[in-house]
Amino acid sequence: MSNRYNKVLYVGITSNLIKRVWEHKNKVVDGFTKRYNLNKLVYYEIYDDIETAINREKQIKSWPRKKKIELIHSLNPHWDDLYEKLSN
């Protein structure tokens, strides 16, 4: 998740991506994403196995910002909000 200025990044895990992004967009849950207005889904990965997903989340969280930005750019060079494509 990011904001419209692409200045802040958030990495998280969920079992229901569409619902979770909707919650971020509508500021339903207090916390980091609400505080920094992170309401733009710019990258995601889907896994069938929760352990694999958790390990990947930890891996990405440990990366420097530059590497996270490169990952986003590799699949979403314009930083489009991917939520609309997911929810349709």
Rank of each mutant, 00 (worst) to 15 (best):
M1Q: 14
S2M: 02
N3M: 07
N3D: 08
Y5M: 00
K7N: 06
V8R: 04
L9I: 05
V11C: 07
G12T: 05
G12R: 01
I13V: 12
T14P: 08
N16Q: 04
L17M: 08
L17Q: 09
I18V: 15
K19M: 02
W22C: 00
W22A: 00
E23Q: 11
E23I: 05
K25G: 07
K25C: 02
K27Y: 08
K27S: 13
V28H: 05
V28N: 00
V29N: 09
V29Y: 06
V29H: 11
D30G: 03
K34S: 00
Y36C: 01
Y36Q: 03
Y36A: 04
N37A: 08
N37Y: 02
N37K: 12
N37L: 08
L38D: 04
L38A: 01
N39L: 09
N39M: 03
N39T: 15
K40N: 06
L41E: 10
V42M: 07
E45H: 04
E45Q: 13
E45M: 09
I46W: 02
Y47P: 10
D48N: 15
D49R: 06
D49P: 04
D49S: 09
I50F: 08
I50V: 15
E51V: 00
A53M: 06
A53Y: 00
A53Q: 08
N55T: 01
R56C: 02
E57V: 01
E57A: 13
Q59G: 07
I60N: 14
I60K: 13
K61A: 04
R65G: 06
K66S: 12
K67M: 14
K68L: 14
L71G: 08
H73M: 07
S74Y: 03
S74L: 03
S74D: 05
S74N: 10
L75V: 10
N76Y: 13
P77V: 09
P77E: 00
P77W: 03
P77D: 09
H78Y: 14
W79P: 11
W79H: 11
D80L: 01
D81E: 03
D81R: 05
L82K: 15
Y83V: 00
Y83C: 12
Y83A: 07
K85A: 15
L86R: 15
S87V: 04
S87D: 01
N88Y: 09
